[in-house]
Deep mutational scan, measured.
Amino acid sequence: VTTYKLVINGKTLKGETTTKAVDAETSEKAFKQYANDNGVDGVWTYDDATKTFTVTEMV
Protein backbone atom coordinates (compact mmCIF):
# COMPACT_ATOMS: atom_id res chain seq x y z
CA VAL A 1 0.00 0.00 0.00
CA THR A 2 1.36 3.38 -1.06
CA THR A 3 0.29 6.92 -0.20
CA TYR A 4 -0.67 9.03 -3.21
CA LYS A 5 -1.26 12.79 -3.20
CA LEU A 6 -3.71 14.91 -5.17
CA VAL A 7 -3.05 18.60 -5.78
CA ILE A 8 -6.17 20.53 -6.82
CA ASN A 9 -5.76 23.75 -8.81
CA GLY A 10 -9.41 24.54 -9.30
CA LYS A 11 -11.23 27.75 -10.09
CA THR A 12 -13.05 27.63 -6.75
CA LEU A 13 -11.32 24.76 -4.93
CA LYS A 14 -7.59 24.59 -4.26
CA GLY A 15 -5.70 22.29 -1.95
CA GLU A 16 -4.24 18.86 -1.39
CA THR A 17 -5.45 15.50 -0.17
CA THR A 18 -3.91 12.05 0.14
CA THR A 19 -5.12 8.49 -0.10
CA LYS A 20 -3.59 5.08 0.46
CA ALA A 21 -4.01 2.61 -2.39
CA VAL A 22 -2.52 -0.57 -3.80
CA ASP A 23 -1.57 1.16 -7.06
CA ALA A 24 -1.75 4.43 -8.99
CA GLU A 25 -4.78 3.32 -11.00
CA THR A 26 -6.82 2.69 -7.84
CA SER A 27 -5.86 6.03 -6.32
CA GLU A 28 -6.62 7.82 -9.61
CA LYS A 29 -10.18 6.46 -9.57
CA ALA A 30 -10.65 7.65 -5.98
CA PHE A 31 -9.18 11.08 -6.74
CA LYS A 32 -11.29 11.54 -9.88
CA GLN A 33 -14.41 10.68 -7.88
CA TYR A 34 -13.34 13.15 -5.17
CA ALA A 35 -12.76 15.88 -7.77
CA ASN A 36 -16.09 15.14 -9.46
CA ASP A 37 -17.92 15.24 -6.12
CA ASN A 38 -16.39 18.68 -5.52
CA GLY A 39 -17.20 20.04 -8.99
CA VAL A 40 -13.59 20.08 -10.23
CA ASP A 41 -13.14 19.21 -13.90
CA GLY A 42 -9.77 19.79 -15.49
CA VAL A 43 -6.57 18.46 -16.98
CA TRP A 44 -4.93 15.60 -15.07
CA THR A 45 -1.22 14.84 -14.76
CA TYR A 46 0.66 12.24 -12.71
CA ASP A 47 4.25 12.25 -11.46
CA ASP A 48 5.31 8.70 -10.63
CA ALA A 49 8.49 9.85 -8.86
CA THR A 50 6.48 11.74 -6.22
CA LYS A 51 3.26 9.68 -6.50
CA THR A 52 1.39 12.94 -7.09
CA PHE A 53 -1.65 13.60 -9.25
CA THR A 54 -2.48 17.18 -10.21
CA VAL A 55 -5.77 18.40 -11.62
CA THR A 56 -5.88 21.91 -13.09
CA GLU A 57 -9.10 23.62 -14.15
CA MET A 58 -8.91 25.97 -17.10
CA VAL A 59 -10.03 29.47 -16.15
Rank of each mutant, 00 (worst) to 15 (best):
V1T: 12
V1C: 15
V1R: 09
V1G: 10
T2H: 14
T2D: 09
T2I: 14
T2R: 10
T3M: 11
T3N: 06
T3A: 06
T3K: 07
K5P: 03
K5E: 03
K5M: 07
K5V: 10
V7Q: 05
I8M: 07
I8V: 07
I8F: 07
N9K: 11
G10K: 04
G10I: 12
K11L: 15
T12H: 14
L13R: 07
L13M: 12
K14H: 10
K14Q: 11
G15E: 11
G15W: 15
G15S: 13
G15C: 15
G15K: 12
E16A: 08
T17Q: 09
T17F: 15
T17G: 04
T17C: 15
T18S: 11
T18H: 10
T19H: 13
T19P: 02
K20I: 14
K20S: 11
K20N: 12
K20W: 12
A21P: 01
A21L: 03
A21C: 09
V22L: 12
V22I: 13
V22N: 09
D23M: 03
D23L: 04
A24Q: 13
A24N: 06
A24D: 05
E25K: 12
T26I: 08
T26C: 06
T26L: 06
S27D: 01
S27P: 04
S27M: 06
S27E: 01
E28L: 15
E28M: 15
E28K: 12
K29E: 07
K29P: 01
K29I: 11
K29D: 04
A30V: 15
A30P: 01
F31E: 00
F31C: 02
F31Y: 02
K32G: 02
K32N: 03
K32T: 04
Q33L: 10
Q33G: 05
Q33S: 08
Y34P: 00
Y34L: 06
D37Y: 07
D37L: 11
D37F: 08
D37S: 09
D37K: 10
D37P: 02
N38I: 15
N38W: 13
N38G: 04
G39C: 08
G39L: 05
G39V: 03
G39S: 06
V40L: 09
G42Q: 01
V43Y: 11
V43D: 07
W44P: 00
W44G: 00
T45G: 05
T45N: 07
Y46M: 01
Y46G: 01
D47G: 01
D48P: 14
A49L: 12
T50E: 05
T50M: 05
T50L: 07
K51Q: 09
K51D: 02
K51M: 06
T52Y: 01
T52Q: 04
F53P: 00
F53D: 00
T54K: 04
T54E: 04
T54H: 06
T54P: 00
V55K: 01
V55Q: 00
V55G: 00
T56K: 05
E57K: 03
E57H: 05
M58L: 13
M58A: 11
M58V: 13
V59K: 10
V59C: 13
V59Q: 12
V59R: 10
